[in-house]
Design a binder for these strands. Structure first.
Lengths: 274, 274
DNA sequence: GCAAAAGTGTTTAATTTACACCCATGC
DNA sequence: GCATGGGTGTAAATTAAACACTTTTGC
């Protein structure tokens, strides 16, 4: 902070601000948090990927009560700290950490994974043990990383599930995959938000390798929307985004069952932080 | 629950489920929550209305440290209960309650007010006293209710602010309305979400009287988007939604400076609960 | 050569945008 | 009468949808 030369008006203003800050510092010094009950806060992750041209979600089998044996979304408690001094970790950081812990991915790898907040769920009784408020995120994991995912920590098993099957109420019951807690609701909300984000933002590129062909990108869009798209029209819409500087042609060709396809690269936006 | 006739397969299944539920009941009986630190959780409200054809937001002046004297979003703690037995109130309910407490509106009135969750903010240090995680909502208040709003509770004053001025960084500093905490960020997020919702959902009708003219509805859209709209085109887009059953013609005419205008009514959707 | 998918082009419909103009009313 | 805003119509521009066709490769 610059020490302002004391012009009369400005000086008065500065003194007032210093006064206020002094007051506040004294207040905080003496402040002791009350003993009102507080909720536990968790992050729950809806981790998506595309396998076999179908949208999949990562679930973990619960090894403990409640809902022991049921499939659930990975997640865990937000680190909070002790109020004074360190206040703990940010929500986004908690989501990243949980992703890392539950998938076994390395820190640098999991930090490159796209994460977006969905909504916060806090109905009383959603966890029978105690009041738990859960901030839901969805994550997009490139299929190339999937083989490196192993369930870690306190979950006995993690598995990818076809989202279409999981969301269909009939096969949900038949397959015995009724999710724990209110996780079916959270999954629905995450799916809706992700689909809405698909044609507003650039999230499609998060599910495709570093360089990709148009048809690979189209396969991702088809998996997310759950319906086929016209190859020609998709290509045109896509090529427009070259002019917008969103993507650029990359070197090389990708061999296919027929004619080799051109590959492209997503141009990461210059990190404006928002 | 129906007592199933005991076919062999089903019987085995039922026994297994009963076993699981017994286990879980015993587990919950014995369960004691750990002593890990928990955050405080609040709801913050971004209450919008349209006054003088301009979008306004309700702010309260803080009467206590921290940020004493600064303007802030109304809000308060979520009631949590004691874990066992009553777990407290839902997040939406907390938002409604705070709206009621901070505006002095009646219970029935404030229950008719549109509320939508924006996002949850939980960066460490956003409240210097302790770790506070805040679930942000935006609310839409019909201008007809505005005169009945009085600041209640522990705030010394509440006031409507022109959003355009408030968001503009220059006039924000000049006017001395730098908001407390991270409330400027929350306001921005709420504004963005509300604008996005405007042409996806029917929120426009929430800021207009029970019956309204097309131009009144257009004024609301113009206030939210911050730019004028073509009257003819807006009318056509609007009239299409009559065929969709979203609105219907109401009785009577509204006198204007010139030709009296037809009035319409928003047909509330049949409450599908979501 | 043939299948298969890449890549291009064309036609039509639907939607958006801009703007001209008539009409009923208060003053 | 005439200013004002309600209400209607039309033409151009843009975007979306449907689909035919040509090209290049592997086998």
């Amino acid at each position: 902070m610059k020490a302002a030369k004391r012009k009369p008006g400005v000086g008065a203003r500065v003194e007032r601000v210093e006064q206020r800050e002094d007051d506040e510092a004294r207040f905080l010094e003496r402040y002791r948090p009350g003993v009102y009950p507080r909720p536990s806060v968790t992050v729950d992750l809806v981790v998506f990927t595309v396998l076999d041209r179908l949208l999949h979600v990562l679930l973990v089998r619960r090894s403990e009560h409640p809902f022991k044996g049921r499939w659930a979304l990975p997640g865990g408690f937000v680190r909070v700290g002790d109020d004074r001094g360190d206040q703990g970790e940010d929500l986004d950081a908690a989501a990243h950490r949980e992703l890392l812990e539950e998938t076994g991915l390395s820190h640098t790898t999991s930090n490159g994974i796209f994460l977006e907040q969905v909504r916060t769920f806090g109905a009383p009784g959603r966890d029978p043990r105690m009041r738990v408020i859960s901030v839901a995120y969805y994550a997009l994991v490139r299929p190339t990383l999937v083989p490196r995912i192993r369930a870690g920590g306190d979950v006995s098993h993690a598995e990818w599930f076809d989202v279409a099957e999981l969301v269909d109420p009939a096969s949900r019951r038949a397959g015995g995959t009724e999710l724990a807690f209110d996780h079916a609701v959270i999954l629905d909300a995450a799916l809706a938000k992700m689909r809405a984000d698909l044609d507003r933002t650039a999230i499609g590129f998060e599910l495709v390798p570093e360089t990709f062909t148009i048809q690979e990108l189209r396969a991702v869009h088809e998996a997310i929307r759950g319906e086929p798209l016209d190859p020609g029209n998709f290509r045109k819409r896509f090529l427009r985004s070259i002019e917008d500087g969103v993507i650029e042609a990359a070197r090389g060709k990708r061999p296919t069952a027929s004619k080799p396809a051109s590959v492209y690269r997503f141009v990461r936006p210059p990190r404006s932080d928002g």
